[in-house]
Design a protein around this nucleic acid. Sequence first.
DNA 1: CGATAAATTGAGCCCAATCAAGGCAAGTGG
DNA 2: CCACTTGCCTTGATTGGGCTCAATTTATCG
Lengths: 241, 241
Amino acid sequence: MDGHVTNSSLSNLPLLCRFCEGRRNGICAVLTPAQLLEISRHSSRRQLAPGEKIVAEGEEISSYHNVLRGVVALSKTLSDGRQQIVGLRFPSDFIGRPYGDESDLAAHAAVETDVCSLSRERLDRMAFEVPDLGRRLHRQALKELDEARDWLLTLGRKTAKERVASFLLLIAAGAEPLPRNATGFELPLSRAHIADFLGLTIETVSRQMGALRRSRIIALEGSRRVAIHDAEGLRRAAALG
Amino acid sequence: MDGHVTNSSLSNLPLLCRFCEGRRNGICAVLTPAQLLEISRHSSRRQLAPGEKIVAEGEEISSYHNVLRGVVALSKTLSDGRQQIVGLRFPSDFIGRPYGDESDLAAHAAVETDVCSLSRERLDRMAFEVPDLGRRLHRQALKELDEARDWLLTLGRKTAKERVASFLLLIAAGAEPLPRNATGFELPLSRAHIADFLGLTIETVSRQMGALRRSRIIALEGSRRVAIHDAEGLRRAAALG
DNA sequence: CGATAAATTGAGCCCAATCAAGGCAAGTGG
DNA sequence: CCACTTGCCTTGATTGGGCTCAATTTATCG
């Protein structure tokens, strides 16, 4: 629906964009080579260590970002320190909040992560001039809205076990580009991050992981590597279907 | 930033739009009289009784809506019946999810409500042709996203008392157009709806309202009318500031 | 290998859910 | 006008799921 451009040969593309995920599935997919060149002049690729901050809560934003590799956690914090992760961004996802006003999120790399940082001002201007880009950003916002609302149901109404099961399904599904093989996949979040995402404590997450393992729905190898043995059982445990 | 139109005299406007809130603050604010006329040809005003359904979960959507009066609750339901209200729409708010795919919400009038129903197909087409309208819808989505993320923090990390206090602040602030006077304001939701919004049970909501009353932070007149006696205390009780 | 952080496990407690009873206001029919 | 119903809310007693605090165990990394 959006894309109608860029089957052009690699050599037309700015160096920065040639092997970029964002160009294939992200917001850059709707840009022509000329537009890519224009925006790439004000872009830069950055590698982030696990835990590294991308934007702090309340900070003035001057760049947007595309996630190229890794996972970024968006979080909000209460004045007394309680924290909630309100979204996860995976490769080809966009990070940013057009139309400045409001919003007050922190963004941290959850694992080693590459992002492409774009000039906010430039992209805003281009979104104004290129309707397809504006629409692409609109769709991105709607996707995030859908995700946030799904998660509201999870946080408001699901039990600890259901939340953990829902999380595993989310990662298993939404995280295709993450390292995975026959023996399962790698969780891109620590127990502490998972707890912050699920509105639980570390201990409860750990116990529920253990419970899912003991009921043979999943298998664990170390604390990060997960294999789903009974997908149907996991869906049931997540209160789906 | 959006608006650059319509200081035109009332008589230029379609009858339907003349006294409409949506024209002043809603998405219709960016439309010219001619565009309003075009869209209003495929619009109709409806009055909804409390509890009346606007769209069911999973239903195919053929209209968008503007809320003119009252309150609309957007909700999601688990297969076993557990329900979560994921958003409230007040007068001048837009109800709808452009770009069809995904999203699976029910919408119910919480109180007696007037909505203006617009042809989805027409508005989609107009949003494609009128950049300002597309941007207005984009901003609307971002506003909803901000709200959803605030609520994620509330549902994930706040206690029952903090949730109830947060809810009262939300209504007191966001519901300016609702009936109010010196003795406070009218809650637009029943205890059951409040519970569904806060991820609590009716009984807990009732108890926490009682607790806030006993600590002289609010006063209750019947079960619907609320007066805030100690705004600062309420903010503290909501874990803000 | 030792040091330090991360994850698991256990014991006890507390907040909110559950179960159950009763109050209150509006409507209905005799 | 009063008995009765019905829907909504409040209050009480009890239970239980998830939190807290604390002790190990297991990864991770110099």
